[in-house]
Design a protein around this nucleic acid. Structure first.
Lengths: 236, 236
DNA sequence: ATCAAGTTGCTTCTTGGTGAGCATCATGCG
DNA sequence: CGCATGATGCTCACCAAGAAGCAACTTGAT
């Protein structure tokens, strides 16, 4: 899957992250691989990204992250593959494989499994968040820090936001939101809806994205934000 | 399932990966099998890929990976069959049906990695399917049989279908479509667009889902279906 | 405004993968 | 036996990708 150079670079990055917690800059990588130009690094990085081993943000310093390690490296260096903020949990026992297979059940490759906690009304509210009905896999790039869960959307009140009936939305648990965010809002401690959030003083507006539905206004003590929309998955 | 040659090659590749962490190039394989031409290797590799033992990226150096090993080899060499961290659970009972030997391609847990083949215009412009830019994980429930890939949507011509600018669409490779399907259509062998497909006699209509765009009509020889929309992933 | 970190264009050279065309050989089948 | 088929082997041609270097340009941060 990888050429020697690519493997070397990946290994270097991995070590740096393990050591410093921060990925190296292009210049540091250039030094490490003994090159005289960053452009070479750029190409190697591109190749690694294309093959799905790292993920990155363009134009951001040190904005790269190892998503997975080839088996060869994983065996060689003991470290956990790292993604999304949880690695310091694995201790090395005598038999490292004692748990990786179980521990990473929810985190294998570039995906994470999230529980689908029932349905949510995008139109008229449905009962609040219920139980886990099943699990979905989502790209780990979709979830950042914090706890997440998924809900199945019922209704069409958010169609203008590109959220259709039957879509699965990925929600990050949070109790705050910024204006314009799409949130899971619990109204009057009874009904949960998916709406766009807008605050004005101590009034909260929950806007649908469908002209057929009206914006509803509440006092801020009537509405509890339960999560913010971070992703969406649809199957045809 | 495999011919002798194919088995030999697979074994060689496996050993090399175990030893170096880097798969051999065609030339190295050629040497190992004592051939005088790479093209033979090419054929063997193709056969192995077809049978699901290896996975690869076309036109990329050493971009190949062993996905599974035939039982014969697995017993012979102790090595792990490779995919993301779970094999130590299978004991050999009398019923090895744990793996029907055709299953689990890149599949780990409930997710599969697919290549993102660049961007597709949902509006006017184009750049036909280009290269792999990176990989995404999608729930395996989203893909059925057949080959799949992903594209990033540019433009807003499908907004009324809930497909926004920046969304990643999952495409199943196929050359046929039913009326109403959303497809990747290659028009005039030049531009690829994501549109709703409708056939009428030997005329094909490509409809946008946005009143600002007009339906375009073509003769059926001007349009080639390259895939059908099966899923969508959006990150906020 | 300035610096550091990334991104790109262009060049050069080497390595590596693709594919057409043709020959050989074993095998299963009437 | 003669033929079709499929797996292999080879040559040759071609072109793409990997790797490296230099330099200029863009972005983000301060």
């Amino acid at each position: 899957m990888l050429t020697k150079k690519q493997l070397d670079l990946l290994e270097f990055i991995h070590k740096r992250v393990q050591r410093d917690g921060v990925p190296p800059s292009f210049d540091e990588m250039k030094e490490a691989l003994d090159l005289r130009s960053k452009s070479g690094i750029h190409r190697l990085i591109t190749a690694l990204e294309e093959r799905g081993f790292i993920r990155r943000l363009a134009h951001r310093a040190r904005a790269l992250e190892i998503v997975k390690l080839p088996d060869a490296l994983e065996a060689k260096l003991g470290g956990a593959p790292s993604p999304s903020g949880f690695e310091p949990r694995v201790i090395d026992g005598d038999r490292p494989d004692s748990r990786p297979s179980g521990a990473r059940a929810l985190e294998s490759g570039g995906a994470i499994e999230l529980p689908v906690m029932g349905q949510i009304a995008a139109g008229v509210p449905i009962a609040a968040i219920a139980e886990v009905s099943h699990q979905v896999s989502v790209p780990s790039s979709m979830v950042g820090k914090g706890d997440h869960y998924a809900l199945e959307v019922k209704g069409d009140s958010m169609i203008d936001a590109g959220i259709n009936n039957g879509d699965v939305v990925i929600i990050r648990e949070t109790t705050t939101a910024d204006n314009g965010d799409i949130v899971v809002a619990l109204v009057e401690d009874a009904e949960a809806t998916l709406k766009r959030y807008r605050r004005n003083g101590n009034a909260i507006a929950l806007e649908a994205a469908n002209p057929a539905y009206e914006t509803r206004l509440f006092r801020d003590d009537q509405v509890k934000v339960q999560g913010r929309l971070v992703g969406l998955i649809r199957s045809y």
